[in-house]
Simulated assay, not measured.
Amino acid sequence: MIDLDDTDRAMIRAVAADALISAGALGRQLGLSQPAAWRRLKRLRDAGVFRGPRLDLDAQALGFSVTVFLGVKLATKGRVSLEDFERAVTAIPEVQTVEHVLGLYDYRLRVVARDIADFERVLRRRIMTLPGVGNIDANVLLSEERLPGPIG
């Protein structure tokens, strides 16, 4: 874990808002010289604070108007069952995230579809046929607000 000061936190917020911001612009925004901003940014990157640049796609603009969160409980438990399920579910292009969780369900999936009929097709033909699937619970996303992380 890296020790962060107020300038580091401000830098993280600025980079979260614009991942392509230059060290010069970052320095001007934070009251640092370009070399000082670059050194701090490099230290944060080297420490693994930033996992790398990310492309944030707008699913609706690409024609995917439905997002559904699925809670999946496996019928059988065991290392082989988990690995088989994970390998199979990550091959489904409509599944955006796969989270192994503790609680009522074993996995939480974020699934996108063009419409409800398309989601039903994905659910019936792809997800319900995965190895080890037992119970499935669905929650349709109505709206989403992106909030800053704990650094904010």
Rank of each mutant, 00 (worst) to 15 (best):
I2T: 04
D3H: 13
L4S: 00
D6F: 08
T7C: 01
T7M: 01
D8Q: 01
D8C: 00
D8S: 00
M11D: 00
M11N: 01
I12Y: 01
A14H: 03
V15H: 02
A16H: 08
A17L: 12
D18N: 11
S22C: 03
R28F: 09
R28T: 10
Q29D: 09
L30I: 05
L30G: 02
Q34I: 02
A37I: 00
W38H: 14
R43D: 01
G48H: 03
V49R: 06
R51E: 12
R54H: 13
R54Q: 15
L55S: 11
L55D: 09
L55F: 12
L57V: 11
L57W: 07
A59E: 09
A61D: 12
L62D: 08
S65P: 00
F69L: 15
F69R: 12
F69W: 12
G71H: 05
T76N: 09
T76C: 06
K77V: 12
G78Y: 03
R79M: 14
S81K: 13
L82S: 12
L82A: 12
D84G: 07
E86T: 09
R87A: 12
I92D: 05
E94M: 04
Q96L: 15
Q96K: 15
Q96C: 08
T97G: 07
T97C: 07
V98P: 03
V98R: 07
L102I: 03
L109K: 08
V111L: 05
V112L: 15
V112T: 11
V112G: 05
D118V: 04
F119Q: 07
R121L: 07
R124Q: 15
I127P: 04
N135R: 15
I136G: 03
D137V: 12
A138F: 05
N139A: 15
N139W: 15
N139H: 14
L142W: 10
L142R: 13
S143I: 12
S143R: 14
E144M: 07
E144G: 05
E144S: 11
